[in-house]
């Protein structure tokens, strides 16, 4: 008797694997959904910076930090679960959400939040990828082992996200009478723009997003131009 075309054991083996895969995805979806809720809330609170004068930032950022705490907790949960499986198999499911979570932390810190005893928060503080990893207490840029981590791309894309938000804030801060902040934002965005020029980009999503930074640069430069034209740039900021 010739062997059959397909070994029945092969079918069972593959079927089991596909079923496992499906249940992993379901569980991941739940965690990512939870993260989504926390990120959306935090982003919502952060959107109030556009109508909040700088003197009231501490209260607002306190609320943002509450949201970030929840994000951190959920990322921890995600990290624990996802580390059981090959990272790049499911990474695409959460990468957007992680980028958004990183953005909220970066923006909060830049505005003067996320301070600690050793390092008090201050405006214009840019958290590095290492800071972000430490904050979420997950590894970064892992190469030697296969576990959950935050990638270089996720950090950079998260950073680009806040540029748009800050360029909007430059305008709104002027409306609120805080011209100094607009100048600070302008210099920060220009620094970042120069920084992104240092990268050798390939034709991918990062390249596309980096290309969009120039519009933010233009927007803040216009604001600073309007201010300087009318001699509205505060002396302290001008000396920078």
């Amino acid at each position: 008797m010739a062997p059959p075309m397909i070994d029945p054991a092969l079918f069972d083996q593959l079927k089991t694997k596909i079923e496992e895969d499906t249940s992993v995805r379901k569980e991941l979806d739940q965690i990512i959904d939870e993260l989504n809720q926390h990120v959306a809330y935090t982003q919502g609170v952060l959107s109030r910076i556009h109508s909040t004068p700088r003197s009231k930032y501490p209260v607002l950022l306190g609320q943002v930090e509450e949201g970030i705490k929840k994000e951190v907790a959920t990322v921890g949960k995600l990290s624990e679960f996802a580390s059981k499986y090959p990272y790049y198999k499911y990474n695409y499911k959460w990468t957007r959400m992680i980028q958004d979570a990183i953005s909220t932390v970066l923006l909060c810190a830049w505005l003067g939040g996320m301070g600690s005893e050793s390092q008090p928060g201050e405006v214009c503080r840019l958290l590095t990828l290492d800071d972000i990893g430490a904050l979420f207490s997950v590894p970064i840029n892992l190469k030697d082992r296969d576990a959950f981590h935050i990638t270089v791309e996720e950090y950079l894309l998260g950073l680009i996200n806040i540029i748009d938000e800050l360029s909007r804030l430059a305008m709104n801060s002027v409306t609120l009478g805080d011209n100094e902040l607009a100048v600070q934002i302008s210099s920060f965005i220009k620094d970042l723009h120069a920084g992104f020029q240092v990268l050798n980009l390939k034709n991918d999503i990062l390249r596309k997003r980096v290309d969009s930074i120039k519009y933010a640069v233009k927007k803040v430069e216009d604001v600073v131009y309007d201010l300087s034209l009318r001699n509205l740039i505060p002396a302290k900021a001008a000396s920078e």
Partner: peptide
Amino acid sequence: VRNACTPLFEHLRDELDEH
């Protein structure tokens, strides 16, 4: 243009180039 961010980006550039 060198600025405060440049070293950070140079480090990340090396990582991306490797990839």
